[in-house]
Design a protein around this nucleic acid. Structure first.
Lengths: 105, 105
DNA sequence: TCAATAGTCCCATATTTCCGAACTATTGAA
DNA sequence: TTCAATAGTTCGGAAATATGGGACTATTGA
């Protein structure tokens, strides 16, 4: 089980979070990740918020989310497990994520 | 006194708002507009959150904010007056703007 | 050892952003 | 009126960024 590189909580920036969530696809991904508390593989077969999207594009979206500090990715065997960093985000920007997601969809 | 074109409140989209505010300069502009309840001309001489920025770039930022439904622009003589659409935004996405701005800067 | 699966990396194309320069509109003065 | 000054917009090219196809890597299971 490998941990990928993630920004420390205090290094998460507001602009980064907003930029990451300003893409409708990424917003849907985060929403889907939260709704099924359990993981979601990068292919989004479980959450399926991204039907006809190229693998490379999807990979890029997850990278943006990861670098913005929105999700934590762990590599388990052949697949990646993405979890929203709810606690970290709430520590850094109290209430923000909830407030944004409340209006998603 | 001329009203420029603005989206109706119900046409304001979450992605649009987030995209508009995901630019640090625009976030600063909105914050500055709110802090001095009174107008701010497009040159930001009053708010001055944008020192060394080309006129055309600034004009573009205000257009983005306007089209996203974040500010209302009225043309008074030779200058433009920009006001944050607080009430409209709060009607469309209750609490969102406040939540985002609480963490700005 | 080999095939299958899950992602990443690289590259070409497409889109967006930035800024200078030219242009438009309004005002105020001569 | 006419002219200069001020405030923004529009245009066009350069720079930055996003997209997706295809090749590549890593892990698993047969």
């Amino acid at each position: 089980m490998v941990q990928l590189v993630h920004p420390a909580t205090e290094d998460i920036s507001l602009a980064g979070v907003l930029a990451a969530l300003s893409d409708p696809m990424r917003l849907r991904i985060v929403k889907a990740l939260l709704e099924q508390a359990d993981c979601v593989s990068m292919s989004c077969t479980a959450a399926a918020p991204c039907p006809a999207m190229a693998k490379s594009t999807l990979s890029n979206h997850f990278r943006v989310l990861r670098e913005a500090g929105l999700v934590r990715t762990t590599k388990k065997g052949v697949e990646h497990r993405n979890v929203v960093r709810e606690a970290d985000l709430d520590a850094r920007f109290p209430g923000l994520l909830k407030s944004i997601l409340a209006h998603a969809e």
